[in-house]
Design a protein around this nucleic acid. Structure first.
Length: 361
DNA sequence: GGGATTTGACCATG
DNA sequence: CATGGTCAAATCCC
């Protein structure tokens, strides 16, 4: 779907820009002889950005070299033609409604999905806020079997006005209540994730639940640097529902700060809340070492990276790139699409000039 | 009054 | 049938 693709473009570019920005930060830090810890943190973030960019490339690319894990079939039975909705609806309630339901369901299935695990700061815990730059509206909550805390369901506030089908789930960790697992599904196609609308998040949030008033979009572009700092000191992204067994999908990134984007507080990391090892211990599945298996696949994408480098050269105006980002993606989420994202349904948005020969053939 | 949240019911899936 | 995900009416809150 075009939206998915737009989103990936932007995510990719934003990751690369992010990497660049972080590298600049690192250089500054090196100049100023900062602590080894913060330097290391920056390195981690840079690596994280590039890893994700590589992943995006990997799963976008035509990957002419047959890659077994293109789990196109992962989303059970999603037809190639997304809109071939003609089957008679199962229930006969209301014709109109049932058709809508099917459409929605189908749409939903095709949405990419990824999971972040983030730790809240004590501050944001109090406020119940987590600003990821988007505006979410809660539409449900459910007790999950075996989980201490209920799972909350959010969808983009602009679902109807802008046909934005992004959703997210928030699940508080049993073991460490300061950690929330955020499962995103679908890319934002609304404009609001990237541009203004953002009444200053009122601190009056509801108690247990995260506010859905996650807007904090002013100066999104201008603040990219700040965002870089406050975001993702560690982000662990799980791609779920992978079919490909040999590529058990768990990508570890350094831990993330959850009380993000409190623009007035850039102290970083927030004292006492960031503890990478803790987060990773809490969430890393024991079954694998992500890096190793991933790197093999990355190496297969190297030629793509080279091509991408060329592309960037032909496209290297920063404002240009930022424009792309602001057009349709979040610079903050930097999601990695779930591998069950049906690649064959990606439609190229030709306005984005990924025209390097062979890049997407 | 309008938008957001809550919550029980309904639906899809395995 | 159990479970997770979504809907939508009721309620809350500004």
């Amino acid at each position: 779907m075009e939206h998915g693709w737009n989103w990936k473009q932007g995510t990719l570019v934003s990751e690369l820009i992010q990497g660049m920005e972080l590298a600049k930060q690192l250089r500054l830090q090196l100049d100023s002889a900062s602590s080894a810890e913060s330097t290391d943190l920056l390195v981690q973030k840079i690596l994280s950005s590039y890893e994700k960019a590589l992943l995006i490339l990997k799963f976008n690319g035509p990957v002419p070299i047959a890659q077994p894990q293109q789990n196109v079939g992962a989303t059970s039975g999603v037809p190639e033609s997304p809109l071939s909705i003609n089957g008679s609806p199962r229930s006969d309630d209301l014709d109109k409604d049932s058709q809508d339901t099917r459409e929605v369901s189908k749409k939903r299935k095709m949405l990419p999905r990824w999971t972040d695990q983030v730790r809240v700061t004590s501050e944001s815990l109090l406020e119940g806020t987590h600003d990821d730059g988007f505006s979410w509206r809660k539409y449900g909550q459910k007790d999950i079997l075996g989980a201490k805390y209920p799972r909350s369901y959010y969808r983009c506030t602009y679902r109807h006005t802008q046909d934005c089908w992004a959703t997210k789930q928030v699940q508080r960790s049993d073991e460490d209540p300061t950690i929330f697992e955020l499962t995103y599904r679908g890319a934002h196609t609304c404009a609001h994730g990237n541009q203004g609308v953002p009444p200053p998040a009122s601190p009056k949030k509801s108690q247990e639940h995260k506010s859905t008033n996650f807007n904090n979009n002013n100066n999104r572009q201008l603040q990219s640097q700040d965002i870089l700092f406050s975001l993702r000191n560690g982000l662990r992204v799980n791609t779920e529902g992978l079919d490909n067994k040999e590529m058990a999908p768990s990508f570890s990134f350094p831990s993330t700060s959850f009380g993000l984007l409190k623009s007035e507080n850039h102290s970083f990391p927030p004292s006492g809340v960031l503890d990478n090892s803790n987060i990773l211990n809490s969430f890393s599945p024991p079954f694998m070492s992500p890096a190793a298996s991933e790197l093999n696949h990355f190496s297969a994408s190297q030629s793509q990276m080279n091509n991408f480098g060329e592309m960037l050269n032909t496209h290297n105006s920063e404002s240009d790139l930022k424009g792309l980002i602001s057009a349709n993606t979040s610079a903050t989420n930097s999601p990695i699409m779930d591998l069950d994202f049906p690649l064959d349904q990606v439609e190229l948005d030709l306005s984005f000039q990924f025209d390097t020969p062979g890049f997407f053939s």
